[in-house]
């Protein structure tokens, strides 16, 4: 009996590896920054070019950093949810305006509303690249010590917020 079961088991193990390879989502790579300090930056603000904004903003509170651009259709889809998020008291929502122009970005915010406490202006995308951004929108959860805890690629949906991001934020605010 063993003669038949042993090869069958090996074959089943091999098949499950292949199936795992098929169902693993290779497009959303876990951020390399997870559990590392958020990369430092010193950049102008989107809404006031004479004012600088640095990575010190993340200290002392739980931050949600949302990478967005006016040319990004998925960001529009995500925008109403961000407006909801802005009302929450236990997190601070920051924006990283990625590879955009001041004019287009400001116009978008005027039309749809501004959910962000402040926005980093990154027209050539260099800050985005230090954060390992592969596209917009992307959202980082950063803890009180300025350490990146999670990155979500693509739009935040209510489902993802409820099941992934909110439990993490609750954990971090303990």
């Amino acid at each position: 009996m063993m003669r038949f079961i042993a090869p069958l088991l090996v074959f089943a193990a091999f098949c499950s590896l292949l199936i795992l390879g098929l169902i693993t989502d290779t497009h959303t790579v876990k951020s390399a920054l997870t559990h590392k300090s958020a990369p430092a930056f010193d950049a102008p603000r989107l809404l006031d070019k004479n004012q600088q904004i640095t990575s010190n903003i993340f200290e002392g509170k739980i931050s949600v950093l949302n990478v967005w651009a006016s040319w990004c259709p998925t960001c529009y889809q995500e925008h109403p949810f961000l407006m909801e998020l802005a009302k929450k008291k236990n997190i601070t929502l920051y924006g990283l305006n990625y590879k955009d122009t001041r004019y287009a970005a400001k116009k978008t915010l005027q039309k749809l509303g501004n959910p962000y406490k402040s926005i980093i202006y990154d027209p050539d995308g260099t800050i985005g690249l230090t954060y390992g951004v592969t596209g917009t929108p992307e959202t980082f959860i950063i803890d009180r010590k300025g350490i990146v805890r999670y990155k979500h690629t693509s739009a935040i949906t209510k489902d993802i917020w409820k099941n992934k991001l909110l439990p993490l934020i609750n954990e971090l605010s303990k």
Partner: peptide
């Protein structure tokens, strides 16, 4: 030390 991973002056 702060990480200036990709950003270059």
């Amino acid at each position: 030390l702060p990480v200036y991973a990709v950003q270059e002056k």
